[in-house]
Nucleic acid binder design. Structure first.
Lengths: 249, 249
DNA sequence: GACCTTGTTGCATATTACGCAATATAGTTG
DNA sequence: CAACTATATTGCGTAATATGCAACAAGGTC
């Protein structure tokens, strides 16, 4: 596989810009890429020319440009699941009172492609566009349990509840298949519980998952079965609708 | 200004991918860029290597990859206005019953950076991430009227109501300054009215605008003053809060 | 199973990006 | 306010790299 070097470098710069909250200077870029300052300067200037990066004239530091937002929107707008899921997300949110999400599998992680927030939803790190691990999220486990995705080998720990051994994960996925829904019981974010169920397409292939998340104060262990029933119902209705939708993601 | 050619070409490919709903073939890319098929193939393969593009194995057509979504999220998360505006958006939505938005100026257009949808909001093309013209949107006109942005010279027509002459726009902006809020009376989308007011930072510089949009059936001419009052109030409270926030966008 | 369309790869060449060093620009300190 | 430091940009020669062509491979169709 032949790679275009300077393009690859430009893309790595974008990655770096994305990870740097306060912008990046040309010298910092050059250091991180083991490049000459001059080369880094020219590369990032090119990115800025096309609005992929933006230069703060006063600090002369670069950050991401608006074009990435536009691209993201283009991508999300093209996902049929997103459109179809919208009313179901609303329904979920209204009936549960909690935040609802849809996600798809992407790069061995779960990509949140849409959400509907409840009136008093919390700030979780599960915003649209975030890529979260599969093994410690309800959306992720729902897809793992019903799909053909190989299990991740590295199970990073995020909280005390995170399942970090393959065996415990496998056992958990068995339960998910029996129950028809997956949970995340403070396995990723402390104080947050989630429930999710898979979404299938016309070939009964898992194409994503849908669910809700909320604080443990409202999503009590007692209330979980009730929430789960709701999520399952909605996920099945959504799958049904996806059957009659254009056959793409 | 020296531009890195192959990086620029890669970025143009991303632009094209964003505009193509059904993916793009290598030959189509080569045509659009006046490039050899081989070069186009290598460029887009590099993009795919870094998850900026994705290749459908069966159709062999390329589309945008998940990394652009992640980048977009990084950018939006870094905007202080977005965080601060969130509760105000909720308030606006709840009190008006309509969809609320915040936007900033970007590339001579208005970039919608967040929104809160009402229970029965319509599908507008003002989703998060969209770049809309300034002269025919309430958010845009609010920024034009109170900011130092030069007026756009080309006023594209979208509906019968679109203001397409500089004079009528200037006159309208005068009115905006007098009233303290801007409107979009079906000037961009048929059947949709919007109201917006500017948001200022600690230096009384316009950094964005906030507003609501809804169908003309609910946002009647009669109800507009009432909505406007609400929007102004919220925008002022938001500006107040932005005064005490980190001094960036 | 042969044909046609489309994508990928090998290779030689020339363009292009690179690194170095010099210049310019900001910010800082005496 | 001036000298100094740190950082960004630009000119230029060179060498590496991307390019275009053409051959090959892979899928789809008839």
């Amino acid at each position: 596989m032949t790679e275009i070097q300077s393009l690859a470098r430009g893309l790595r710069i974008l990655d770096i810009l994305g990870e740097s909250p306060n912008g990046v200077s040309v010298t910092e870029l050059a250091e991180q890429l083991n490049l000459d300052k001059g080369s880094a300067s020219r590369l990032v200037a090119t990115l800025a020319n096309y609005a992929y990066a933006e230069k703060d004239p006063v600090s002369r530091r670069y950050s991401l440009g608006p074009q990435v937002v536009t691209l993201s929107r283009s991508l999300l707008a093209k996902l049929p699941l997103r459109d179809v899921a919208k009313p179901f997300l609303r329904e979920l949110m209204e009936k549960s009172g909690e935040c609802s999400h849809v996600g798809i599998l992407s790069q061995g992680r779960v990509l949140y492609i849409d959400q509907v927030e409840s009136a008093a939803s919390l700030r979780v790190n599960a915003e649209v566009g975030s890529l979260s691990p599969l093994h410690c999220t309800a959306l992720g486990k729902a897809m793992l349990a019903f799909g053909r995705t190989p299990l991740p080998q590295k199970l990073e720990r995020f909280t005390d509840n995170t399942l970090t051994s393959i065996d415990s994960l496998k056992k958990n996925l068995e339960l998910v298949r029996e129950q028809g829904y997956a949970t995340d019981d403070e396995e990723f974010d402390l104080g947050v519980r989630c429930i999710a169920a898979p979404v299938f397409d016309y070939r009964d292939k898992v194409i994503g998952s849908i669910g809700i998340s909320g604080p443990i104060t409202r999503m009590t262990t007692k209330a979980m079965p009730h929430f789960a029933e709701l999520v399952i119902k909605v996920s099945q209705a959504l799958s049904e609708k996806m059957r009659f939708t254009a056959h793409r993601t």
